[in-house]
Design a protein around this nucleic acid. Structure first.
Length: 493
DNA sequence: CAGATAACTTAGCATAAGGAAA
DNA sequence: TTTCCTTATGCTAAGTTATCTG
């Protein structure tokens, strides 16, 4: 039993970047868990409610292996997070003011169950009651509770492989594809708006330019003292921007340096149009470093504006659109028909990486990176030696032939072939090393899962003869099941 | 009409699982 | 078989956005 004062715990975990293991501190913990297990053993069939809206109200079915399912219109689907979050110490990311606070055990009395009216309601653990049982088929969650540290909602939701999640994912990409049709017009408009006499309009135009060009997030206001101090586009402060008339041999360079989502640092230097530069100079005039760059702009007004430009358009659609477009374009540039499957997969990873860099998806450098890099360097050295050796042998054979006055021999061909093969292997090792180095701090998964229309990848696999298993793991294939029969080899985002 | 709330997507990290090497 | 390394998955925090509310 860990019984340190909370302030000691907080201090202890202040600089710990890893997640703090859950502390099973509550006396009633065992009994509670048993209670939850009991709940999980009740068999409930779920059916869709009578009226068919965009959503439905599902329910759970426990299975012996611990995987739980629910029924939607007779279809059995997986549930995503079927376990309750255990109590523990809250460990936010970055410099979080609530780091180390105790996250309490969730009791059935705090849980709302959402299930169809005509189904058998799941039993609460013995001696307990649900907070509420409701039948709301306009939402997608199965159960919900309030988390005490952040005072926010938590939900039991469906697995990404479910039809519901799949349909929503599909819709997301369809909105992004619609943006493709109007993006030229939108770009022309915000460029024109850089010259607007209205400060508000110019701020909106510059912010939208950043969101489009640099794939920045919208950047909502955050309550001070509630979360780490991070920003996005609309919440950028003067201190995050530096302007250089000339830098890196380019004109009108904007330097951005701020902490974004998850306190991941965004650093970029980019040359912008003169009008953008001048606008930024104006926005920064007579301000303190801590002042908002876009003082006349809110995320609400930005999204309101976007909604007027295209139905369903919001700021985050630009990230999806630019990510997917970049993948498609990069795949086109990097794929060569005559390449082996291995090289093609490498090309895919490169294209994926271009997107991850655009979206600033970073990861901690793997702990084993240095070591595995050394191993790879070792391999390269060995291969180099082999190449050198093969060259010497080849020369020897050539000299031999000259003495005998011959021009060809079986041995010569053999040696030539061997040298060629070794050289190819060396080149491959070099690319592997470069790739590893360039990828050490880039997280590919996030964009692959959330930003890249799977139909682009599926179509590319079909076109270039790459088995889909080389690109998507089992769960990823299940997640993107909706895309498989949609994407022929000629699919265009 | 701004701020709060609710419900959803997006995010990186730890670790489990899988596979290669010893 | 055991160990060592990479990849896949689970977890839950941290965003975005639409809607509600006073």
């Amino acid at each position: 039993m860990l019984l340190l004062p909370l302030r000691v715990l907080r201090r202890r975990f202040q600089h710990v970047s890893c997640r703090v293991p859950c502390l099973q501190a509550s006396q009633g913990a065992k009994a509670n868990r048993a209670g939850w297990e009991e709940k999980s053993r009740s068999r409930v069939k779920w059916r869709q409610l009578e009226h068919k809206g965009p959503y439905f109200t599902p329910a759970y079915e426990p299975l012996p292996d611990g995987v739980r399912f629910f029924y939607d219109d007779g279809r059995r689907e997986k549930i995503g997070n079927f376990k309750m979050e255990p109590p523990g110490l809250f460990c936010g990311r970055g410099d979080h003011p609530k780091m180390g606070k105790l996250k309490r055990r969730v009791m059935p009395e705090g849980v709302v169950i959402n299930c169809s009216r005509d189904s058998k309601i799941p039993e609460p653990p013995a001696g307990h009651q649900w907070k509420e049982v409701r039948s709301d088929n306009t939402v997608t969650w199965l159960a919900a509770w309030t988390e005490n540290v952040q005072n926010s909602f938590k939900y039991i939701i469906l697995n990404p492989s479910s039809k519901l999640k799949g349909e929503m994912d599909w819709q997301k990409y369809e909105v992004a594809r619609r943006l493709k049709g109007v993006v030229d017009k939108i770009r022309a408009q915000y460029q024109a708006d850089w010259k607007s006499p209205e400060r508000k309009k110019r701020q909106l135009a510059v912010a939208l330019y950043f969101i489009d060009k640099l794939a920045l997030r919208t950047g909502n206001e955050k309550e001070e003292g509630e979360a780490a101090n991070t920003v996005g586009c609309c919440s950028l402060r003067v201190e995050h921007v530096r302007l250089h008339e000339k830098a890196d041999g380019q004109e009108h360079v904007v330097e951005l340096d701020f902490l974004g989502k998850d306190s991941i640092r965004y650093i970029n230097r980019v040359s912008v149009e003169k009008l953008v530069f001048q606008n930024l100079q104006h926005f920064m005039e007579d301000k303190d470093p801590k002042d908002d760059l876009f003082d006349a702009l809110t995320t609400a007004s930005l999204n309101k504006h976007l909604q007027d430009l295209m139905e369903g358009l919001t700021a985050k659609v630009f990230r999806t659109y630019n990510a997917s477009t970049t993948l498609q374009e990069q795949l086109r540039v990097l794929t060569r028909a005559e390449d082996s499957v291995t090289s093609k997969v490498l090309a895919y990873k490169r294209a994926n990486r271009a997107v991850a860099v655009l979206c600033n998806h970073q990861r901690a450098i793997p702990k084993t990176f240095e070591k595995s890099m050394r191993t790879l360097q070792q391999k390269i050295e060995t291969k180099k030696a082999q190449v050198a050796e093969a060259q010497v042998e080849l020369e020897k054979v050539k000299a031999d032939l000259r003495i005998r006055g011959e021009s060809k021999s079986k041995s010569l061909l053999q040696k030539q072939r061997r040298l060629l093969r070794l050289e190819e292997q060396l080149v491959r090792l070099h690319t592997q090393a470069t790739d590893k180095e360039e990828n050490k701090q880039v997280a590919l998964g996030t964009s692959k899962l959330n930003y890249l229309d799977p139909r682009i990848s599926i179509a590319w696999c079909k076109r270039s003869g790459v088995p889909i298993e080389k690109i998507y793991s089992k769960t990823q294939r299940e997640r993107f099941a909706w895309a498989f029969n949609q994407a022929g080899e000629d699919f265009e985002f």
